[in-house]
Design a protein around this nucleic acid. Structure first.
Lengths: 149, 149
DNA sequence: TTGATTTTATTGATATATCAATTATATTTG
DNA sequence: CAAATATAATTGATATATCAATAAAATCAA
């Protein structure tokens, strides 16, 4: 018999998965309302690139917890859509300089309200203390999962 | 200017994403130690099928927050690996009856320790109160994201 | 400066997520 | 019962995740 016990332990991580999926679905639904054919991940990369234009693809990947291979492909799609330009870096020809096009800036502008809406919707009714505690617990879990045991 | 403000709001959902990815990576690493070429999602479906053998694919999908299309493909791989059998349902020929093979049972048995290890590792040092509070907050977020606003 | 190593990014292969369209079977309705 | 509708699962298309292998350029070391 291979009993899988329903400990709070198990429930919590299951609920964590549920929460992130629910949040991602909400985000995509709200993006769909203002923008055609843009994914949550594409929107995220636009936001990050606008905020940190000097980062390399690897640095962006680390920042958003994605693989560098995923970044390559997401950026490719953003370039295809005309939201981003990619040019060889001035001083290091292994890298690329990524810039939002006018259309990219426009897209991002249209998304700012949506981004705020997503966050406010997801966290409605939570106090600052509750959020702080939640954040602390998340950090502990991350530390537990990443310390090279 | 398209200022993206670093509110606690934003940070929390970012950290949530980080936590689930760190946890998934830990799980995969630990599975890799005892089992060759089995993914976290495949292991999850084995666990669920063992526990709830009578569920339809759609019901399993709902239970683990996956799409029914994803379930079809994961099950296909488990059948290919010889861990699962899939036979047409007795009374409803649209459905399938899914059963762990002997090898599937054996695989699951080898994973039970790993599953417990994953959970204990991820949640080490967290008190029951902290976990309960964490769970409550997650449920609020889920409710916020899923209520048809 | 050449040769070894490291860094940055791409590519290929496979797995999963999501949505839409389709197929097959069941159920409901008139 | 026949027609309409609903349900269960598959399939196709596209996006993303992950790992391994590769290519190109930069850096380090002898």
């Amino acid at each position: 018999m291979y009993m899988i016990v329903d400990t709070p332990t198990q429930t919590v991580l299951y609920t964590l998965e549920q929460a992130i999926k629910a949040y991602r679905k909400l985000c995509q639904q709200n993006i769909d309302q203002v923008m055609d054919k843009l994914t949550v991940d594409q929107a995220l990369i636009l936001i990050v690139l606008n905020k940190y234009p000097a980062l390399s693809q690897q640095q962006i990947a680390d920042l958003v917890f994605k693989d560098k291979a995923s970044l390559t492909r997401i950026i490719e799609l953003l370039v295809q859509k005309g939201l981003l330009t990619r040019e060889i870096h001035n001083t290091d020809r292994r890298k690329f300089e990524l810039h939002l096009t006018a259309q990219g800036q426009h897209t991002l502008a249209q998304l700012t309200d949506t981004i705020q809406l997503n966050q406010r919707t997801a966290l409605a009714g939570l106090t600052e203390e509750e959020l702080a505690q939640f954040h602390t617990t998340l950090q502990k879990i991350i530390a537990n999962c990443t310390t090279p045991a």
